[in-house]
Design a binder for these strands. Structure first.
Length: 809
RNA sequence: GAGGGGAUGCCGGAGUGGUCAAACGGGACAGGCUUAGGACCUGUUAGCUUUUGCUUGCGGGGGUUCGAAUCCUCCUCCCCUCACCA
């Protein structure tokens, strides 16, 4: 067999696709659109990793498939190029972040082209360009106008290493999402976006999403809606509301616990207890977050007492490490009898445990199940679920309680004290206060000359920071914070529809044609960040009348993780990464593409095993060898049927994405079968190449051309499967039975009666008369399900119900 | 603690009531082609028989069914996400 020069073939087709603008699309009212989108990457100097390749290839197969199905396919790509990593890398390497970013993007594009991805590069987006972030600023101003942007002093997550504030979503587990440093909690004036206003809609909207269940569950959990009661406790003559979901247990309150991070904690600490409390705060401040997790619940008495409004009882107020400061009211009513955390705390400090719900409390466990109320005055005997409502009503009537809904979701802290981000379009004027930059002055361009070091880089450029107030014309200063990069990625898919529009954010018409995104593909790690922000942005843009839908990405697919051979996560530091370019160099792009999806379902991911790539390579080579050997003529009946089946299956498999792997199997199967055939019609062979082309686009184009075609195979239409008639299936079945019986009867020519036991779903299809006629014996047909018709005299196990088969006598 | 997903042959991984000793790939073994091969081709890869056929078998126990890898139930183990959310 002649050597195949994959590199040459790939390069040739990649060049042609580009030159002839095969994947560039325009709005076309006569054609149905299809929008395939992969999450755009964060460009780094390291280039694409194998996870990117996996993500893009999954999308590319789908886009190519849809294109062949006749859709007008929008398949764009861009770069989420603002953000801390670029800034940090640039500082480290002492180059301008802009240059660093442009180099990275160039490198990315080069690699993406080598993957044979069918992007419309004319729509490329680069969020670090003023033409793009101008509209980030514009959206920000719209939010500002609507009162969704506000400033407040708040406890924020401060990353000392990145020297910036980061959002809750990015500070999970007390560690910086970017650099892994321990997060400090600081009190600072900060800009927030009121995403909490949209909490309910974000939850409601889940109904309309065809998303992985898990992702929806994660978002629900993140938004964390819970219904409860807020009850006023009196401490030192002051009202202190607390939130509880268990008002039914109010008579069992034996102490209160306030969070160690509570802003007003010191108001409760008495002179006598100050020393103790300080010691305690130091203690929990000195242990790292991780150790804290393993620590038991600890606390100290504040010296104050609270009055339980239900029964007037005086209970001690503790400060504890297990109460979250920014959830609910930062203080809880503790009911040790019916809450495990309170129980452990009470046991440790010898606090009274008062049972108010019937149930068994042991030495180590509280009773958290339901039951009837006891020790609860007028409410005794009530079922606790019922009591929740009754007690709440009773508290409401007395004016010391209200029904409330609580969310875990916090407002989005959007300001970053860093350079490489979108400048916030606000101006601080001594006279006028905060003044938004007029829309005509947008974009506020990120200045060049800044100094990195301590503090905010933007403040080091005097020329930039000092402006005239747009309102009064007096001296004013620009807001020196930049926006969180999640702002940039929250609406980029809309800009793809109209990327070069600088008059307006996008043409409504164009967006109407292309949106929403029909399939969005990306990693599951974005479930609680990007995928919440993005939905929020969409809802906002809907509310200001720019778009007429509330979800941009109604269908979502998460690709799985690719780990190393041992199943460990790939990382630079471990040195176990796989470089897509090296693999392409060694085995060719089509081999890699085929390998990527033939290992496992794309949602599951797999462990990268170099050995197995050989299997994919072998298959690619097999196609060439078949191509060289095959004679064109007439397709056999058998192969025709099989090909038909294959086309039908492939169409279904690709559609789901989850079944890509099955598609590769189906393709292998059909080529294996073809190898055994003597000849095939040219038309049928071309069908085979067509169904191969989304997976292995280069060799499909190459062979298509070698057949003498002048067109691109990727622009051809997807073969249609013929419907297989039910009657034909019946015919097949009967023929098979006759064939089998003939075989068996050869050995027993003297027998005259044939008892045929068949599967229930085959029973109707069996043509008894025809079989009798063909084999010349008396035939009795039974369904295996039907015991009554079974002849118990038959001792053959073969004829027993449950075992379809034949009995002959 | 809450939520999500798993356990299949030497390995990866399909299969969600009968056409299942279980697709497909990898590996291993045997044979062929070759000077040789990590290149290619053919076959084998639960056990007994080796042609039909039987037995065992899809994490473990129990159940439903004429029939279970597949349905129900209990148990064990593993992975992921969020976690002291009141």
């Amino acid at each position: 067999m002649t050597e195949i020069n994959f590199k040459e073939i790939e390069w040739k087709w990649q060049k042609r696709w580009e030159e002839e603008k095969v994947f560039e699309v325009k709005e076309d009212k006569n054609k149905k659109k299809y929008y395939v989108l992969e999450m755009f990457p964060y460009p780094s100097a390291a280039g694409l990793h194998i996870g990117h390749a996996f993500n893009f290839v999954i999308g590319d197969i789908y886009a190519r498939f849809k294109k062949m199905q006749g859709f007008n396919v929008l398949h764009p790509m861009g770069f989420d190029s603002l953000g801390l990593p670029a800034e940090n890398a640039a500082i480290k390497e002492k180059i301008d972040p802009a240059i660093y970013t442009q180099n990275s993007i160039k490198n990315f594009i080069n690699q993406q082209k080598k993957l044979g991805l069918s992007y419309d590069w004319s729509r490329k987006i680069d969020t670090s360009q003023p033409e793009y972030y101008k509209w980030d600023q514009w959206i920000f101003l719209q939010m500002y106008k609507k009162g969704l942007v506000y400033k407040k002093k708040a406890a924020v997550n401060w990353c000392p290493s990145c020297s910036t504030i980061i959002a809750n979503e990015q500070a999970q587990g007390g560690e910086c999402d970017r650099c892994g440093s321990k997060i400090e909690i600081k009190q600072m004036e900060q800009w927030f976006i009121k995403i909490t206003d949209y909490a309910d809609r974000l939850l409601e909207g889940h109904k309309n999403l065809n998303w992985p269940e898990k992702t929806i569950a994660m978002q629900k959990n993140w938004i964390g809606k819970s219904y409860g009661t807020e009850i006023d406790f009196e401490i030192n003559g002051e009202k202190w509301p607390i939130f509880t979901t268990r008002p039914d247990t109010i008579f069992g309150v034996t102490f209160m616990v306030i969070s160690a991070q509570h802003q007003k904690l010191m108001d409760l600490v008495t002179k006598e207890q100050k020393k103790e409390v300080k010691k305690f705060l130091e203690k929990i401040g000195s242990v790292s977050e991780k150790e804290l997790e393993e620590l038991e619940k600890i606390g100290v008495f504040t010296g104050s007492y609270a009055i339980n409004p239900a029964n007037g009882e005086k209970v001690p107020v503790y400060v504890g490490n297990f109460v979250v400061a920014d959830y609910g009211c930062g203080m809880v009513m503790a009911v040790p009898a019916h809450d495990q955390r309170d129980f452990e705390f009470a046991k440790k400090y010898g606090i009274k445990i008062k049972q108010v719900i019937e149930g068994k409390i042991t030495e180590s466990r509280s009773w958290t199940e339901s039951g009837k109320l006891v020790n609860s005055e007028d409410f005794n005997g009530l079922d606790n679920e019922e009591a929740k409502e009754k007690i709440t009503q009773w508290l409401i009537k007395r004016g010391i309680g209200r029904k409330v809904i609580n969310y875990k979701l916090r407002d989005w802290s959007v300001a970053r004290q860093r350079y490489w981000g979108t400048p916030i379009p606000l101006i601080h004027c001594q006279k006028c206060g905060v003044v938004p930059v007029p829309e005509k002055d947008l974009p506020v361009i990120l200045p060049k000359n800044v100094k990195f070091g301590k503090g905010n880089p933007l403040e080091t450029n005097e020329e930039w920071i000092n402006v005239k107030c747009p309102s009064c014309g007096e001296k004013a200063r620009r807001e020196a914070n930049t926006m969180d990069t999640f702002v940039n990625s929250s609406w980029y898919f809309l800009k793809y529809c109209d990327p070069n529009n600088d008059k307006e954010i996008f043409s409504k018409e164009k967006v109407k044609y292309w949106m929403p995104v029909d399939i969005y593909i990306g990693g599951a790690e974005h479930s609680c960040m990007h995928l919440i922000y993005e939905r929020f942005y969409t809802m906002f843009l809907h509310d200001i009348g720019l778009i007429d839908f509330e979800e941009c990405t109604p269908r979502l697919f998460h690709q799985g993780m690719i780990n190393d051979e041992k199943g460990e996560k790939m990382s630079k530091s471990k040195g176990n990464t796989v470089e897509p370019l090296e693999i392409i160099e060694k085995y060719g792009t089509d081999t890699m593409r085929f390998y990527l999806i033939s290992e496992a379902s794309p949602d599951k991911g797999f462990n990268w095993t170099e050995k197995r790539i050989h299997g994919a390579l072998r298959f690619i080579k097999q196609i060439f060898s078949i191509f060289e050997k095959i004679k064109f003529g007439k397709t056999s009946k058998y192969f025709e049927r099989e090909l038909n089946k294959t086309i039908k299956n492939l169409t279904d498999y690709i559609e789901t994405i989850y079944d890509y792997r099955k598609a590769t199997i189906e393709i292998r199967r059909i080529f294996d079968l073809l190898e055994k055939e003597n000849e095939i019609s040219r038309e049928d062979f071309e069908k085979l190449l067509k169904v191969l082309s989304p997976f292995c686009p280069h060799i499909a184009e190459e062979l298509w051309e070698r057949l003498g075609n002048k067109t691109f195979i990727c622009c051809e239409s997807w073969p249609k499967a013929k419907k297989i008639e039910e009657k034909e299936k019946e015919k097949d079945l009967n023929e098979k039975v006759i064939q089998d019986l003939r075989q068996i009867l050869k050995k027993f020519p003297e027998k005259n009666k044939v008892y045929l036991y068949v599967l229930p779903f085959e029973f109707q299809k069996i043509n008894r008369k025809k079989i009798e006629k063909e084999i010349g014996k008396e035939v009795f047909v039974f369904s295996v399900k039907d015991q009554n018709k079974y002849d118990p005299e038959n001792k053959s196990k073969k004829a027993l119900p449950g075992n379809p088969g034949v009995w002959i006598e």
